[in-house]
Nucleic acid binder design. Structure first.
Length: 896
DNA sequence: GGGGGAAGGATTC
DNA sequence: TCACGGAATCCTTCCCCC
């Protein structure tokens, strides 16, 4: 393989000339420069590694190919042929789909506004990365997605203009205005491209008088910016494609003042491009075809400033497809191209010929897609208003190793993301942290919450815990990052956003003060959506409970194998915690030990779930806790905390509504289990029932504040925080009985260091320095077990029990995290032989754990074990399970 | 075996 | 001189649970 290394690498970092204006370049010369400039860099090394992974993928594929018998091929061919016939039958040629793509959009806008750039090679972007380049620059091999410094090597005279998105957006809006006249439901793909379905427009257009198809150049001129002369525009006027029957302007006057366009699809598109150019002075290219896939390819055919049409006939489509390189098709990237090339497939004709083989080597999704491509088939129905699936923000920066700085950046990202989410009224349940280390290795860590979030605090609560695990995993080495990103996905549907969702917590609340807070908690997450007031998400929650952090939520019950070391250690602590609780409650809660703790930490399991869902989850048996029902108990046991000092216990079954006095928790849980088995769904109450019930519950005498607080503090054994450090600082402080003395959530008091969001240039205040600051902070009760009524207290670390003289909660938070981490590691060391940390803490630890009892199960998990070192990059092989095997099993064929 | 979460990767602009 | 992005989507694989 070494001998091919150079050639292999070229396929990854070498020039990608699959772009208009880059034909016929001296690739060897350009690649030599690119290679020389890149070689030795960490980026290059990482690319090399990725390249090798792709090569291994290919090797595996070739091995699979070698195992395919003639018989199998025959069967596969029959399968393919059958599907091909079906697809042929359903081929639709009736729609007129157009893909319009602005030519070198950003560069064109910049050149328009700065004419002296017109004749120079220029690109838009920075020395780090270029967004696009003009056609002069492309002749030097300079293209989009190329770092500016490499582009400069290729073209020393290159002018790099910084991006100005406001400007591009403005031009884009002008263009879209025109699009909407041809297809009100056009589908924008980005600022510079869109799909249109011209079918309806063309039907109407047939009957349009000439006047409706006439565009006056003078009029167009007036549409343009006044500061650009007509002469200038003429100079920029497109030379419209020459073969069109009506490409020659039909002049209505001797002075070339107006142009009449025909009624055909070509003419309509030509007219559209003409208008775009007249209005913006920027040219566009277009593709006209019976489907989106073809239209997209077509728009690139005569770039720049041209258009191409595939007639709506099968013969024409197949003729067009025949010699089309697969790489030209949207969705086929460099990896797929290389894999196909290894099979001798370069163009679509070959793709079609090798379909049987492909069906045996690739997943169903993949080879079906290949089959569509080979037949020139694509979507004819443009998906309108497809819902967003995720939202994220990420930042690249110079090497960052300081944990505090990383947490601070994380918070900043969460802040930005929260603003974006709230702007669009979105809430999602999954928070993903993306990290790229200085070796360019990317990893992501996700956590799915039990409720949807949108505020900075909520997102950060999850993200920081994910970050902590990563920082801890390489400790004592610093985590060296070059990128961090935060994503929120799993958006709740409009249906889920409805207010007054009933939670099992609501049913269970007997204490007036807390019952309110639970429903408010559920409601709080919905408020912003309901009234459309994004800011409400950030309002200090006057009556609502602080949403627990990830640590506070018990992860969805899964097998211990799937729990991380931290999670399992956390569970252990929770068990210990519950044992203490048993003493307090004075009841036999042995069987509920874990669940009780879970109840304490998981405050919102059902907040965003429907009752049906709740009921379902309630009846779920959970092996994780060795109890019969995890969620029901935790839901039930929550109030048990509230009434911990009240004897006897008086609980209401959330299913049958029966009040049970002086019942121990095990019995109560068993009762609920039985109820759920019998009538979980049938008894689903209506929304009004839930409200009514809630009101009734609220009217019941509340548990006393002191009881509640005592319970909270007693239940909050600092040691329990070892695995869930942030619990100590973000555990909800509930409102008091009268609701007037609500304790502001911890994060509400966080201060922005230096009052600045960007951490990239932020100088962090050392802990010792900040320690001189006053240490009066509310909400410390949750941390320091001090009465909730107390104020102005010293911040006491619940782990090391040392006073922390800082009022900077972020710093305090970090301190607690550090302490907790140390304690976890200490505990770990106690139970395991010494570990050599010379390589990486966690990888070594996990390596050591490989043959040790319960923890070894973690090692078995690819996900758990792969993080963070050795490099998490896994070779993605073509699994027989999902390709050949699956294929044959699914078709009653013989296995290989 | 299917569903679903987590993690990584491919692809696009 | 140093220096290789950001956002979104879809797919695949692994793993656990049911």
């Amino acid at each position: 393989m070494e001998s091919h290394q150079g050639a292999d690498l070229l396929s990854r970092i070498a020039l990608n000339d699959n772009k208009a204006g880059m034909e016929g370049l001296d690739r060897d010369k350009i690649n030599k420069i690119i290679l020389e400039t890149s070689k030795g860099s960490r980026f290059y090394e990482n690319e090399l590694k990725k390249e090798q992974q792709v090569n291994q993928r290919i090797e595996k594929m070739m091995e699979q190919k070698a195992r395919i018998t003639k018989e199998l091929m025959k069967q596969a061919q029959a399968e393919v042929d059958k599907l091909r016939c079906e697809l042929e039958r359903s081929r639709e040629l009736g729609r007129v789909i157009v893909h319009v793509d602005m030519d070198a959009f950003y560069a064109a806008v910049e050149m328009r506004d700065c004419p002296e750039l017109k004749d120079k090679p220029m690109a838009v972007g920075s020395m780090s990365m270029l967004s696009t380049s003009n056609y002069h620059a492309r002749r030097f091999g300079v293209r989009a997605a190329m770092p500016g410094f490499i582009a400069k090597k290729l073209c020393p005279n290159l002018v790099i203009v910084p991006t100005n998105f406001d400007k591009y957006r403005a031009v884009s809006a002008q263009v879209r205005e025109i699009f909407s006249e041809y297809d009100p439901h056009f589908m924008p793909m980005s600022l510079d491209e869109a799909y249109l379905d011209l079918s309806e427009h063309l039907e109407q257009r047939k009957h349009w008088p000439e006047t409706m198809r006439t565009y006056c150049i003078c009029d167009a001129t007036t549409e343009n910016d006044a500061d650009r002369s007509t002469a200038e525009k003429d100079e920029l006027s497109p030379v419209l494609f020459e073969d069109s029957p009506s490409s020659s302007p039909s002049l209505s006057g001797a002075d070339r003042k107006a142009e009449v366009f025909g009624t055909s699809a070509e003419e309509a598109v030509r007219e559209m491009r003409f208008r775009i150019q007249q209005k913006t002075s920027i040219t566009a290219s277009a593709g006209i075809a019976p489907n989106m896939m073809l239209a997209k390819v077509c728009s690139d055919k005569n770039k720049p400033n041209g258009q191409y049409r595939i007639p709506p006939e099968r013969q024409a489509v197949m003729e067009f497809i025949k010699d089309l390189p697969v790489r030209k098709v949207s969705g086929v990237g460099k990896v797929t191209e290389k894999m196909l090339a290894a099979l001798g497939i370069v163009n679509c004709d070959q793709l079609g010929q090798q379909m049987a083989l492909l069906s045996l080597l690739f997943s169903g999704t993949s080879w079906h897609n290949f089959l569509h491509i080979s037949l020139g088939l694509g979507s004819t129905c443009m998906e309108r208003d497809s819902e967003r699936k995720s939202m994220s923000t990420e930042r690249t920066f110079g090497e960052m190793s300081d944990a505090e700085e990383q947490y601070s950046l994380c918070r900043d990202l969460c802040h930005d993301l929260a603003q974006d989410l709230q702007r669009e009224g979105l809430k999602g349940k999954t928070v993903t942290l993306k990290l790229k280390n200085v070796q360019f290795e990317v990893k992501s860590r996700a956590f799915t919450l039990q409720y949807a979030v949108c505020t900075e605090e909520e997102i950060f609560a999850a993200a920081k815990d994910l970050l902590k695990v990563e920082i801890d995993s390489v400790s004592p080495q610093p985590l060296k990052l070059r990128l961090m990103g935060v994503r929120v996905s799993g958006f709740i549907s409009a249906e889920d956003k409805k207010p007054l969702q009933r939670s099992i917590m609501g049913f269970l609340q007997k204490g007036g003060s807390d019952s309110g807070s639970f429903t408010q908690c559920a409601g709080s997450a919905l408020k912003a959506d309901d009234d459309g007031d994004a800011a409400s998400c950030l309002k200090p929650p006057s009556t609502e409970m602080k949403v627990p952090s990830v640590s506070e939520q018990i992860p969805k019950p899964r097998g211990p194998q799937q729990q991380s070391f931290f999670q399992r250690a956390q569970m252990k602590r929770l068990q210990q915690q519950q044992e203490q609780m048993s003493v307090i409650v004075g009841k036999d809660t042995t069987n509920n030990s874990v669940d009780a703790a879970a109840a304490q930490t998981d405050l919102s399991t059902t907040n965003t779930q429907s009752d049906t869902t709740s009921a379902k989850s309630l009846s779920t048996t959970n092996s994780w806790t060795d109890a019969t029902s995890y969620t029901n108990k935790h839901a039930v046991l929550k109030p048990s905390f509230k009434i911990s000092t009240q004897v006897p216990l008086c609980l209401t079954c959330p299913v049958c509504n029966k009040e049970m006095k002086d019942v121990n928790l095990t019995a109560f849980n068993s009762h609920i289990d039985e109820c759920l088995k019998g009538s979980a769904v049938d008894n689903e109450p209506t929304a009004s029932d839930a409200v009514k019930e809630q009101e009734e519950l609220n009217s019941k005498p509340p548990a006393s504040s002191s009881e509640s607080k005592t319970l909270k503090s007693s239940s909050h054994d600092p040691s329990c925080d070892e695995e869930k450090p942030s619990t100590s600082i973000s555990v909800p402080v509930e409102e008091t009985d009268d609701g007037s003395d609500f304790k502001t959530p911890f994060f509400a008091h966080r201060t922005k260091i230096n009052g600045k969001r960007s951490v990239l240039h932020k100088k962090k205040m050392p802990l010792s320095e900040s320690s001189s600051k006053a240490s009066q902070t509310a909400s410390l009760e949750a941390v320091t077990e001090i009465s909730s009524a107390s104020k102005g207290l010293l911040l006491m670390c619940p782990v090391c029990s040392q006073p922390q003289s800082t009022d900077d909660l972020a710093l305090f938070n970090s301190h607690v995290d550090m302490c907790l981490n140390q304690e976890v590691l200490l505990e770990f060391r106690e139970s395991h032989p010494p570990v050599d940390h010379s390589d990486s803490a966690l990888s070594s630890v996990r390596g050591q754990l490989g043959d040790q009892g319960r923890v070894s199960k973690v090692e078995k998990s690819k996900r758990q074990g792969s993080s963070p070192l050795p490099p998490s990059k896994k070779i993605k092989v073509l699994s027989t399970k999902h390709t050949i095997d699956k294929f044959f099993k699914g078709n009653s064929r013989q296995n290989i």
